[in-house]
Design a binder for these strands. Structure first.
Lengths: 110, 110
DNA sequence: AGTCTACCTATAGAATGTCAATAGGAAGTA
DNA sequence: TACTTCCTATTGACATTCTATAGGTAGACT
C-alpha cells in the first residue's frame, strides 16, 4: 500500500488494463479503480490515458464493448476481454516477466 | 541468458545506462555492450536509441564526456557519471523497485 | 591509394501517455 | 420545475521517448 502514486511506466498500461478485465467486464472508470486497487494504490490511470488506450485495444481486437448502466444508473460503456485479449494478456505477462527479470538482474550487477 | 532480445521498455533506458556507467567510464558502444551483458542478453540498445539518450543525460548533468582512444585505437567519446548521475541512479533504482513491485502485485491478483 | 570497420551524429518519424477542457445525463435538493 | 453536482466518456494539443536510417570521420589493413 504505497502512499504516492507513481507515474505509469510506458508500455505497461495495456497489460494492466488486460489484467483488470480478466475477472469480468467493467466500465471505463471501473477499470481505473481496479487498476488502482490491484497495484496497491501505486498507479492511478486518469481518463485521458485510459480511454485512448481502450479504443486502441478495441481496434486491436483485444476487447469488445457495449453500452449499459453503471451501478449508479448512469450510462456507461462496458469492456470485456475477447479471446484474442486473453491471449494478449498471456503474451504481455510473459514479456513483463522477462523484462523485470532482466532489469533486476542488471541492477544487481557489480 | 535469454535468446531473443526484447524491445526496450520505454522509461528504463536511462536506468540501464546509468547502471552501466556505475563501474567506470565507457564509450558509446561499450555502454551498449555492457547493457547487453548485465541484462543477460535480454536488451540490445541500438545507436539510434543510445546516443540521443546520452545527449539528453549529459544535458541533465548526469554524465560528462571527453574524447579519447578506444581499445582499437580509434577515436571514441567516453562517458562517465557525475555526482548528480549517481544520485539519479539511486532515484531511478528506487522508482524501478516500486513499479516492479506494483505490477508483479497486479499480475498475482485474482 | 583504396577499402573496411568502429564509432558518432543528425534528422525525421512513430508510438504512447499526459493534461486540460468539454459534454451529456442521472441523481439529489429545494 | 429549476439548480447543482456527480459520474462517465470524449477529444485534441502536447511532451517524451524510442526507432530508423543515412551519413560522416578516422584509423587499420592490404
Amino acid at each position: 500500500m504505497n502512499s504516492e502514486p507513481t507515474t505509469l511506466l510506458p508500455g505497461t498500461l495495456d497489460l494492466l488494463i488486460l489484467k483488470s478485465l480478466a475477472t469480468g467486464e467493467l466500465h471505463g472508470l471501473g477499470i481505473s479503480r481496479r487498476i488502482q486497487q490491484i497495484t496497491g494504490g501505486t498507479f492511478v490511470v486518469k481518463p485521458g490515458s485510459l480511454f485512448p488506450a481502450l479504443h486502441r485495444m478495441e481496434e486491436e481486437g483485444w476487447t469488445s464493448s457495449f453500452w449499459g448502466d453503471s451501478e449508479n444508473n448512469r450510462r456507461a460503456k462496458y469492456y470485456r476481454l475477447t479471446k484474442a485479449g486473453r491471449k494478449q494478456l498471456e503474451v504481455e505477462s510473459r514479456r513483463w516477466g522477462r523484462i523485470s527479470w532482466a532489469i533486476t538482474q542488471a541492477l544487481q550487477a557489480s
